[in-house]
Amino acid sequence: MQTKKTTPWLYLAPALLVLGFFLVYPSIHTFYLSFFDRGSVRWVGLENYLHAFTNLVMLTAFGNNALWVAVFTTATVFLGLILAVLFDRVKYEIIVKSIIFMHMAISFVSASVIWKFVYAFRPAGASQIGILNAALELFHLPPVPWLIERPWINNLCLIAVGVWVWTGFCMVVLSASYKSIPKQFLEAARVDGAGEWIIFRKVIFPLLMPTVTVLATTMVIFVLKVFDIVYVMTNGNFGTEVIANRMYKEMFQFRNFGRSSAIAVVLLLFVLPMMLLNLRRFKKEGM
């Protein structure tokens, strides 16, 4: 498109101004603080980073974040995709879509209250008040203390809460993009005798691929800084710590600005692979 040299900057100016002030400037500030001690007075060099990469709890957090990225991202995007496509085929689409989506509208504190009633544990013999353990009881299985059963069960239980909340968002975005595929494409394929699965794989999926990439990127980045679910449900105890919760604790509970800043900068490093992935696409489109 032919434009004057200044035109793009006119369009970008408001965004750059707001971002510069609310995100870029604080990030630089954070980077700067990460080289100082807890009260931001004494220069400590790389000490905070050394802590971030060697502390035992931080190492657990790295592992857990990796698990979150893998399981949460796959589950939300994949489920979102399947639901978007399947719901499109039924008349009561709006109802089921709303059912999945409405959990986005519940704040995380409320969500934690809700899920406490799913994972609640009472010893065998007492009447269970958590639905999962009540279900186990029905099959004469012993109850499980879900949130303290490390390392897999409790982490997966927390991830399940995230999936429950976020699948709706993925579904809505994918559904918007699915509905923008011209119906003729699908019908043409059907006329050619292609099965639904083939159509999904050969027609729908490639067309939705850009949206899937965007959503996956968004989910990965969101989950890198996942905090609230862990904070309210286990606070990182029993081996469920994640990076952002560690940052929050160092910052607001322990008031160690140096450490919390270093952890925040480390988070920024983890996003690099996602940036490179998007850059490749960006360059291709720029041709």
């Binding site: 870029v24 988070l267 996003v271």
Partner: peptide
């Protein structure tokens, strides 16, 4: 243009609490 786009993505990960 490329740099601005990259920075936009990077900013997604900035934890609000730090700002």
């Amino acid at each position: 243009r490329t740099y601005i786009f990259m920075i936009m993505i990077a900013l997604l990960v900035v934890p609000l609490q730090m700002t």
